[in-house]
Simulated assay, not measured.
Amino acid sequence: MTDNRGIISSGNNNHFSNNAIGKSAKVLGEAVPPHIGATASGGSGEAEPTATWDIGVVTILSEELRSVVDELDLRRHREPGGLYFYRGSLHTPDSTVRIVATQSQSPGQRSAMAALENLRHHYAPRLWAMVGVGGGIDSERARIGNVIVSTEVVYYEHRKINPNGDVRHRGEHRQSPAPVVHAVNAFFAENGMPAHLRRRRRSRTWEEFDVHPGPIGSGEAVIADGDSEIRQYLKAYHEKVLAVDMEAGGLSQYWQEHSVHGAENPGWIVIRGVSDNADEHKGHAHHELAARNAAHVLRELIPFICSPLS
């Protein structure tokens, strides 16, 4: 018999288990730490502790997070350290999809990137989804209540300001990985272009709206001017830009900078319900409508956007 004295412990990542203390202490076998996700219920069933997290959802406003939580039947979970996430699973014809959602601390690119990092650190999802509201800049397709599904982001914030006041924007254009683009194409091939969806309201009436694919512009500016030079620039840069937001550029940048790592880099998608027309009438009156329509579109897209990554 080995005369061990002291403490024996196995584990990693600051998680210690199978401890033995005292004379002749032994640890038989190597302990496997519990999965970061623990157990979460929601959607169509219970999420298995050891399964992969499939979709990480970032929202910005409370209405957006509440809409995603309600639509996907997610449950609140508090990680050690105080961060809150909402987790659950959804059965599709092909698989069970595990979903985790969070809300950034504030609007804008920087806070969105911090929320993505929190999701990556705790859950390492295989797909990023930014879901919420945006401003429409296409009067025909981006009407209030409609939803824009984007796999292309034009970041418009970089610019040069010349001495005479002339502003020259230097746009950046990024596209989602090919599997995500193919998945979105399949969704519209099966549902029409545009896709016409119906969502049941709490009042048991039906909300009908159209879903369009297309690029969105992203920057730090809140646009509330129908004649804004930013709107004019985006249309000149890419005439098919349908909407604007303040966070998607951060998502595409985060993805770009993490593409150098050896592990598989998640795909990404942006889903924006149109809450205003980015003009002088901009306000909060249609946030709830736009957020719930966007969350519903996420649910409808899940069987498509998860399949290529499985």
Rank of each mutant, 00 (worst) to 15 (best):
235 K>I: 05
182 H>P: 02
270 V>S: 02
265 N>F: 04
308 P>E: 13
304 F>R: 03
96 T>C: 10
230 I>G: 03
146 N>Q: 00
139 S>Q: 13
228 S>F: 10
213 P>L: 09
161 I>H: 06
171 G>N: 09
202 R>M: 13
196 H>S: 05
227 D>F: 09
200 R>N: 02
249 G>N: 00
246 M>L: 10
83 L>M: 02
103 Q>G: 00
223 I>L: 10
265 N>A: 13
46 E>H: 07
287 H>P: 02
169 H>A: 11
138 D>L: 03
211 V>F: 14
102 T>A: 11
278 A>M: 02
248 A>Y: 04
307 S>P: 05
44 S>T: 08
189 A>H: 13
196 H>W: 03
240 K>E: 13
17 S>I: 15
27 V>A: 08
32 V>C: 14
117 E>P: 06
117 E>R: 02
234 L>I: 08
32 V>A: 15
303 P>A: 02
158 H>S: 15
303 P>T: 01
40 A>L: 08
96 T>I: 00
253 Q>N: 12
157 E>Q: 09
82 G>T: 08
153 V>M: 06
50 T>A: 10
244 V>N: 12
240 K>I: 00
266 P>V: 12
131 V>D: 10
278 A>H: 01
181 V>N: 12
106 S>R: 03
216 I>L: 13
97 V>Y: 06
79 E>I: 04
175 Q>V: 14
256 Q>Y: 15
53 W>N: 06
58 V>K: 05
78 R>K: 13
31 A>T: 13
297 V>E: 00
162 N>W: 14
57 V>Y: 00
158 H>D: 15
184 V>T: 13
138 D>E: 08
221 A>H: 07
60 I>G: 03
48 E>H: 05
170 R>M: 14
239 E>W: 04
23 K>R: 12
176 S>W: 13
74 L>K: 09
39 T>M: 06
164 N>Q: 07
241 V>L: 04
25 A>F: 04
163 P>R: 05
286 H>C: 05
297 V>S: 04
279 D>F: 00
103 Q>Y: 07
77 H>E: 07
266 P>I: 10
127 L>C: 11
